[in-house]
Structure formats: C-alpha cells, structure tokens
Design a protein around this nucleic acid. Structure first.
Length: 582
RNA sequence: GGGCCCAUAGCUCAGCCGGUAGAGCAGCGGACUUUUAAUCCGUUGGUCGAAGGUUCGAAUCCUUCUGGGCUCACCA
C-alpha cells in the first residue's frame, strides 16, 4: 500500500535529492564537480591576518575590513538561512570560518541557483572581502559562491557527531571530516615521526629500508603472516622485525642506522595491538645499552616538548612526567620492590616455578619454560614417570598422552598437564631440573620463569617512565650477555603507563654464542613454543665476518603516539586499523 | 578463543514488566536581511543487525549466527 516515493528510505531519498540538485546545477551552468576554484588563503590564514584587528564593536551595517578580496574553500558544516541572508560555516584543513551570503552582496545567480542547492557537507568556495558581523564573528562577505563538489551523503548529527566507534574506524574519512580533534591526533603522529627523523639525522644516523618480506622468521618472538611469491614459488613471511637486517648493515660498515617502518605480527587485536604496527629500530656501533638509555630520554623529552609543548601528559587518566632523568631499576630489584618476590627466583627454577604459579602465571607456561632445554627423549622419560604417577591421581579419561611410546609432542603435553596438578609438581620440577647440564642452565631457566612473574605482577605498576635493566638471558636471544653475571643480558625496556614503549640492548656479536642461542630457539620450538625465531645461518655468517660492538633499540611508534597524543587505544592512532570485513 | 555488554530512521538516542515504534538533529515545503546546536509553522522517512523458536500476538522473552566495544588469554 506504500506509495513508491514515500516508501523510499531516508538515506536513499536524501541521496536522490542531492543527485538531482547536482544535475540541475550542471544544467544551469554551475557544475557540481568543478576544479576551477583556487583558494587564495587558508581559513587559518584569514584568521591570523584579520583576527587580531577585531574592532571593539563592529561598525554598523555591512562594512568590509579592507579592500582585499579573498577566495576560500572548505566543507560546509551547517546552513542557517534567513530568507535574504544565509550563514554557512565552512572547514578546511587549517580550521573553520563563516561565510555570510546576503542578497545585496552576492552575485544574483549564485544567490538564486547555487545557494538553494547547497547541502551540509558540500565542498564550497567563496570570493569576497572579509568583514565582521554584528555579533563579532569574522566572516567572508560573499560576492561569489560556488558548490565545488556536491556531497551526496548526509553528515552525522552536527551536535553529537559520530559516536559509533566502528563507523569511525571503518569510515575514517567521515571521522576525520567532522572531528577536528581526530585530525589533530594524526597531525601529532606525523610530527612525532618527523621529530624522530630529525633527532636521529642530527646525530649522524642513516635512514635505511630493509626487506619487509623475509624468507625466514627472525628478529623477534612472534608468529608471522605468511605469503607466497609466484615466480620463485617461494614461501615468504611478512617481517616481524627488521633487526637482523639492520645489524648486517653494521657488519657492512654503516655505524649508525635506523629504519621506521611496519612490522607484522599474527596475533590477537587489543587496545594496544594492531597486526601491522610501526616500529623505529636504530643501531649504533661502539655503544652500549646505557648510551641508548640517555638517547631515549633525550628523544622522548624532545618530542614531548615539540608535540605537547611540555613534558607532562595525562594518559589513561594518570599524570605522567616525561622529563629526564627516569627511574632506572633492574628487573630483579623491581620484582623485589613492587612484587615482594625475593631474588631466589632468579637462581632456583623449582622455587621460581612455585612462586610463579602462586602469583597467577599459568602452570603450563611455567612447565614449558622448565622443559625447554630438554631433548625429546628426556621429556619422554619424564612423561613416563609422571604418567605412572598420574594413574593414582585424578582420573583423566582416555589419558593416552602419558604412554611410553607417545610421540614427543604428546610427551610434552603430558608433562605440561601433570605440572598443573599441585601434588605432582614438586617431584616433577625436580625431575626436570635434575637433567639440566649445569648450574648456569638452571639459573637461565629460573630467569625465564622469573620474567613471567615480572610480567604478571610488576609491569602494570610501572606508570611513570621507568627503565628496566638486566633481563634474564632466556628471554633475550639476540642480546649480549652481562660480563659480571652471564645469566643476564645488557638490556633495558622502557615502560610508561604500564606499557612497554621501547626495548633495547647491547648487541650480541659473538657468532658462536649467537649460534647457541638460535639452537636454543629451535629446541624450544620442538617443545611446542610457537613464537620462536628460525635459525638464521646467513646472519651468523655475517657475524663471523665481524660486527662492531653495538647497541640497538626498538620503539613502537604507535604506542609512543598514544602516549604523546593522550590516546588509550592503538586504533585511535592508526588511520585504518584492521577490522573484520563488513 | 573465554566472559560481560551493545546493535531501533542518514546521525544521536528513547521504547525492552510482550499488544507490530517515538523524539531531537538532518531532509522536504513555508516564513524570516547579522546567525552561532538560529527560530517558528507544516511534513516525509523504519523488514527494530540476521535466522530460528515460544506466543493468539515479539523491537521487547529464548536459541543460534554476524559485526562491534570492554575484559581475560595470546602478545619480549
């Protein structure tokens, strides 16, 4: 019963009406998509130029400020019509300004044909002098008025804006068009990147570009995206980090290099994780991680002063002071001070395991860390032992995983499962650690677990900028060992607001040590670890040529932007964050 | 992947103790020669995210699915 026209939905009707207007404009000699309007000034320039000559009380009547005629362009944000007069606030990249369109001043044809066809959202142009309205608003007294580009889709509510988060991300163009504060965030992001380049360029660093498609996985602990090259019929991985390529450049003789580019990691999405994210990595020969702590303090302080105009920022509701010096504390001291965990956990893996589980670390993760250096045969033997114990314990239907001839993966699974049962855990932990080669290996394993405790209980407490130093060896496969205590590495991470912002270390340049670390990674993979690196033979070959001692650092640009722009979600600092398809 | 929450007009939202939808803005028509979310009069517009189910009857209750948010897990 609905009639053809009246049943048409609002959006469809609005768009049809706007298309009709565009068509009519063209027929009347005022094309709706034109490219012959050249602004003489940005809106901000007009304000700068005339804004400070604002009269105490504007002269009566309509009086141009001076004899100059300007041309401006922008998107129409609203239309307030008064019959013989209309006000149209417009916005360009620089800011907002109001057009004043009056029948006595505007070209008659523009008034009669163009103005009535105007819709909010159209991109318009106007020519005329500048003047002040009675209410004291700087305006363009329009003599000519153009619809430069017709907008067919209606803008969101001018008062409430667009609050639907999903639409803001999916239609970022719309978000940007109506929310100046969103543009401001991305302008800051650009300033930050520019500031980093200037900072490093001034200090003699060379900006380089290294591959983003890698034949093997390396440089970080993360799962990669896979792709394929047809002509070479070759599997490729989107890079998870540029580290190993940049250090090859140190071998080649570049002593200070950096790269700002995308990394890709195949992991979940969250407020602080986007699968593709931008990373700064820099390397400096003849330097240590301690030099980079100073560099980082200087860099972040300088960026804050440039972008914020000061060194204090509110992030996630907390005030943060970014001025140097920042607190420096070892992972071990932080764990003791902020977690009440004694240093014993860095020496004794069995004790570390119990503390970790009592502090909320998943038993399976703890077990995995313990088992990592063992061979498949050794794990099998342990599985046999704990399988026997399990029969007396809580029943596990179809518990084939504990059987003697189980494949290595099953043996590992059985050990991990058994580790979850508190009454078996002490004996199991002892059985595993008894197979360690020496005291050092035990301390390295303890460190791996201690670091999990650190992540669980300490990280979120590091609100003010904190440089954490001396990381356990097991979680730093590319970092140089500490010369006093080789169970640790010369490494630091910067935490702000409970989030990791930067990661740096003195680089491992002993090729034989590096080979041993890669072998550890391969062993860990055999025990089921997924986020491990491939053995990079060519990288080892490069180190064998000799890499100067060096320090390197990675800084997450997205998180740094979040910090300096006061944004709580990484999606608010990435123009087009990954979303499921509509 | 788990838990909690959300999805109603182009936008922002109400309706949710079941009786098949409302407001403001935007739009359309009209009035108005200095407005600032202009105002005033009139008015159009909805397969209530999708599919099933319960019921005489579902926007409303139940189930599943889709998309999103928060959170946990994952994530150096």
């Amino acid at each position: 019963m609905a009639s053809q026209d009246s049943s048409e939905q609002t959006l469809g009707r609005i768009m049809r009406e706007r298309r009709d207007k565009a068509k009519r404009l063209g027929e009347q000699g005022a094309p709706a998509y034109r490219n012959d309007v050249r602004p003489t000034h940005s809106l901000a320039e007009i304000r700068r130029r005339y804004g400070d000559t604002r009269p105490e009380s504007p002269p009566p009547g309509i009086q141009p400020v001076d004899g100059e005629r300007v041309c401006v362009t922008g998107r129409a944000l609203a239309r307030r019509g008064f019959g013989k007069t209309a006000f149209v606030p417009i916005r360009d990249e620089s800011g907002d300004l109001q057009l004043f369109l009056n029948v006595d001043h505007l070209d008659a044809r523009d008034f009669e044909t163009v103005l009535p066809s105007l819709d909010v959202g159209d991109i318009v142009g106007a020519e005329g002098p500048v003047f002040w309205t009675k209410r004291g608003e700087l305006s363009i007294l329009c003599e000519r008025f153009y619809i430069v580009t017709k907008s067919l889709r209606p803008l969101p509510d001018k008062w409430h804006g667009l609050s639907d988060v999903e639409t803001r991300y999916r239609q970022r163009y719309l978000d940007l068009a109506i929310h100046p504060e969103v543009r401001e965030v991305f302008r800051k992001r650009s300033e930050i990147v520019r500031g980093i380049r200037r900072f490093l360029d001034d200090r003699g660093y060379l900006e380089v570009e290294t591959p983003m498609m890698h034949p093997i996985v390396g440089g970080a602990a993360a799962r990669p995206f896979e792709t394929h090259h047809n002509a070479l019929d070759m599997k490729l991985y989107m890079r998870i980090a540029p580290e190993l390529y940049l250090k090859r450049l140190l071998v080649g003789g570049f002593e200070r290099v950096y790269e700002i580019n995308r990394n890709f990691r195949n992991e979940g999405l969250s407020r602080e994780h986007n699968p593709e994210f931008t990373m700064l990595e820099l390397y400096r020969a003849y330097a240590t991680y301690e030099d980079l702590m100073e560099l980082t303090e200087a860099l972040v302080g300088e960026l804050a002063r440039e972008v914020l105009g000061g060194t204090t920022v509110t992030w996630d509701g907390r005030d943060i002071e970014l001025a140097a010096p920042w607190r420096r504390i070892t992972v071990q001291d932080a764990l003791a001070e902020l977690g009440g965990v004694s240093g014993e956990v860095f020496d004794d893996p069995v004790a570390a395991a119990e503390v970790a589980i009592s502090r909320g670390v998943a038993a399976e993760d703890v077990a995995r860390a313990l088992v990592e250096p063992l061979s498949a045969d050794e794990v099998g033997e342990i599985a046999r032992q704990c399988g026997a114990q399990a029969e007396g314990g809580p029943s596990r239907p179809g518990a084939a995983s504990g059987e003697a001839d189980a494949v290595p993966g099953d043996a590992t699974a059985a050990v991990l499962a058994a580790f979850g049962r508190a009454e078996e855990r002490p004996n199991l932990a002892k059985a595993i650690t008894a197979r360690y080669e020496d005291e050092m290996q035990a301390r390295v394993r303890a460190g791996a677990i201690a670091y999990k405790i650190f992540e669980e209980v300490v990280e979120s407490q590091l609100v003010q900028p904190t440089l954490l130093t001396q990381f356990p060896l097991a979680v730093s496969p590319l970092a140089r060992k500490n010369e006093v205590d080789p169970a640790f590495c010369d490494r630091f991470e910067l935490f702000v607001g409970g989030r990791e912002i930067a990661n740096a270390f003195s680089e491992l340049n002993d090729p034989d040590d590096q080979r041993a670390r890669f072998e550890d990674q391969i062993r860990a993979r055999a025990q089921g670890a997924e986020e491990v690196m491939d053995y990079d033979e060519d990288y080892c070959r490069a180190l064998e040529l000799g890499m100067p001692p060096a320090a390197g650092e990675g800084i997450g640009i997205d998180r740094l932007t979040m910090l300096l722009a006061g944004q709580n979600s990484i999606r608010d600092v990435i123009l087009f964050p990954l979303l499921r398809p509509e």
